[in-house]
């Protein structure tokens, strides 16, 4: 399946680390970079607090 993927023309959406997108750009692979980082810098406790406060809006 991986081999099939790389055998086709790649169009990539890259989330998070921009370096991956830059590498692909240098190889002329079409890529859109999405700036993303885990909520609260990846701190699970703060992410849980945020999730609890987000839930109230639902």
């Amino acid at each position: 399946m991986i081999a099939d993927l790389f055998a086709r023309e790649l169009r990539v959406i890259n989330c998070g680390l921009e370096g991956f997108a830059q590498e692909l750009e240098q190889l002329a692979v079409p890529v859109i970079h999405v700036e993303w980082s885990p909520p609260a810098g990846g701190d699970p406790r703060k992410a849980a607090l945020l999730a609890a406060l987000e839930d109230e809006d639902a």
Binding site: S37, P39, A40, G41, K46, L49, L50, L53, E54
Partner: peptide, 8 residues
């Protein structure tokens, strides 16, 4: 406050 903590 939530957006500040979420995004840093």
């Amino acid at each position: 406050v939530r957006k500040v903590v979420e995004t840093g």
